[in-house]
Computed example of a mutant assay.
Amino acid sequence: MTILHQTIPYDFTPRALPGIQPVTEPWLRVDEAYAGQMARRCDLLGTRADKVLYLEPQAHAAAVELLEVVLDLLPDLGFAQAGEGVTCPDGRHVTVGRANPLETLGRLVQCDFVLLDKRGAEHVLTGAVLCFPASWRLDEKAGRPLVAIHDPVASYDENIAKRVQRLFDGIQAGRPLWRFNALWYDDPELHQPRSVTEPRHKREGAGYFRSERQTLIRLPHSGTVVFAIHTYVLRAEDVTRQAMSMTICG
């Protein structure tokens, strides 16, 4: 099943890394691809849970804290809550499971979530629900620090790594930040894991544009930094149309 957006709700003109901006509107979103993306997420959580979920025992409390944060935001997004049950905008009923908080999150909202905790001088990936990876694999990054997570991204050099670590250190609870990336793919499939040992393919003339709205949030109690990823995939012609519209309006 091909799951596509018609537009991206932000200006995706490339910016210099790390390209961070303050969040000025609600960071958690439900959009026109919700039903399709959630069907794909539920399928992956049901059939490939070992590939899309990771949680270290010491990060469980932070994952529950994140779940509570998200639950508080759901009523404004078209969800109905009754006790320990949530009715989603697509009509599904999800039972809130705090024993498996990341799986519950994965069944509720379109975002993927990555938990990063400070250990020593660096933040380390301690948990994630990652249904829609963009050319990386959770099992290769789990438990690793930021620099290792981004290896072998050529543009993520030592200077950028230090800037990003300072950025993570400075994130304040209640003041989320966001950035986006922009990638071209031949295949619109949302679940795109790729091992670091697999070659990168050149994608000139690729038919699909993929962009992740990546929000950085610090949880107020645990202090864990959350990397929330909302994925958009568009046909190339729709990207061209939106880019032209932004140029004209600008």
Rank of each mutant, 00 (worst) to 15 (best):
K118H: 11
F209L: 14
V225Y: 01
V109H: 04
A62N: 01
T197V: 00
H230F: 07
V109A: 05
V52H: 04
L105A: 07
L67M: 11
R144C: 06
I149L: 13
A228F: 02
G19S: 08
D11W: 04
Y208G: 00
V64M: 07
D76Q: 12
Q58Y: 12
H191Q: 02
A82E: 11
T224L: 11
G207S: 08
S245H: 12
R98C: 09
Q192Y: 13
L45A: 09
A49H: 00
T7V: 13
T24E: 05
R241I: 03
D50G: 06
S195T: 04
A161L: 12
M244H: 04
A206N: 07
L183C: 07
E68A: 10
A243M: 06
R98E: 08
T7H: 06
K162A: 15
P101Y: 03
P145R: 05
G143E: 10
Y54N: 10
F180S: 13
A49G: 12
A82H: 02
E237K: 09
Y232I: 05
C131D: 00
H93K: 03
I149R: 12
G91K: 08
G83D: 11
T87R: 14
P57H: 10
C111M: 05
E103H: 08
L77D: 02
P18T: 01
F113S: 04
L67E: 07
A154P: 09
T47G: 01
C111L: 02
P220D: 08
Q192T: 13
E25S: 03
H221A: 09
F168G: 08
V233S: 13
W27C: 03
D139T: 14
H123Y: 02
C88S: 14
P9Q: 10
E103S: 09
R241H: 10
C111E: 15
A35V: 01
A121W: 07
G120Q: 00
I217P: 02
A35F: 02
Y34C: 09
L17H: 03
V64F: 06
L17K: 06
D139P: 03
A142W: 00
A161K: 01
L45S: 03
V114L: 05
V124P: 02
I171S: 13
L17I: 08
P193H: 01
L190F: 10
D11S: 09
E25A: 03
D31L: 04
E25D: 01
R15S: 01
L190W: 11
G19R: 01
L73C: 14
A173F: 15
F209I: 11
D139I: 03
D151L: 14
L66I: 07
G97D: 11
G127A: 04
Q81M: 14
Q21I: 00
A35K: 04
G205I: 07
G127T: 06
H60Q: 10
E140M: 11
R179H: 12
C111A: 13
R98Y: 06
A182P: 05
A161P: 14
L102S: 12
G19K: 01
G223K: 07
C249W: 10
Q214C: 04
F12G: 03
A16Q: 04
G97F: 00
V164A: 15
C111H: 02
V86T: 08
L167K: 14
S195V: 09
C131M: 10
V153I: 12
S195R: 14
K51C: 05
P89K: 14
R137M: 15
Y232M: 09
G170H: 15
G207F: 07
Y156I: 15
G78M: 03
A62L: 02
D31M: 10
V96R: 05
G250C: 11
